[in-house]
């Protein structure tokens, strides 16, 4: 069985995820995918629109949080559910430029109303299989 892209984690009031990947880039993409998948059922979301996503921070975990928060900004202001992510340029710690594909949220019932990615318990680690990252969201 292939390894899942992410798993959700529980918290008293909020929700989090652990994302997996062979490379750091995969982990970032899978965390982004997981976040949208926690918000709505993305299985039938067409990839009809493309957006550019910039992010900058001071280290790898905060760069991941900045990337996820930028995606939440795009979701809220453009009503876009994004399902495919590609990091086109980055230095792994302080800045990245990504592309994301998806389409407008239309009629799906929300699963969770994620409003922000937090620094609480955030981590990005090398593992035997590759990398994994954990993020807790404000719901």
């Amino acid at each position: 069985m292939p390894r899942p892209r992410y798993a959700s984690t529980e918290h008293t009031a909020d929700i989090g995820l652990v994302a997996y990947g062979e490379t750091l880039k995969d982990v970032f993409a899978n965390a982004a995918y997981g976040m949208f998948d926690l918000m709505v059922d993305v299985s039938h979301t067409p990839e009809t629109q493309r957006v550019d996503v910039p992010a900058e921070a001071d280290d790898t975990p905060s760069l991941l949080v900045a990337f996820l928060n930028e995606l939440l900004f795009i979701f809220e202001t453009r009503n876009l559910i994004l399902v495919r992510f590609e990091i086109v340029e980055w230095d792994e710690t302080t800045r990245l430029a990504a592309r994301a594909w998806g389409s407008a949220l239309a009629g799906q019932q929300p699963r969770e109303q994620i409003k922000a990615a937090t620094y609480h318990d955030m981590r990005v680690e090398k593992t035997a299989e590759g990398y994994e990252a954990e993020v807790l969201f404000d719901v």
């Binding site: 928060n69 900004f73 809220e76």
Partner: peptide, 17 residues
């Protein structure tokens, strides 16, 4: 709403630095 979330997100980063 989203405005407050953005203000917090922006300043967490500044304060972290």
């Amino acid at each position: 709403r989203g405005l407050g979330h953005q203000v917090c997100t922006d300043y967490l980063k500044e304060m972290d630095r």
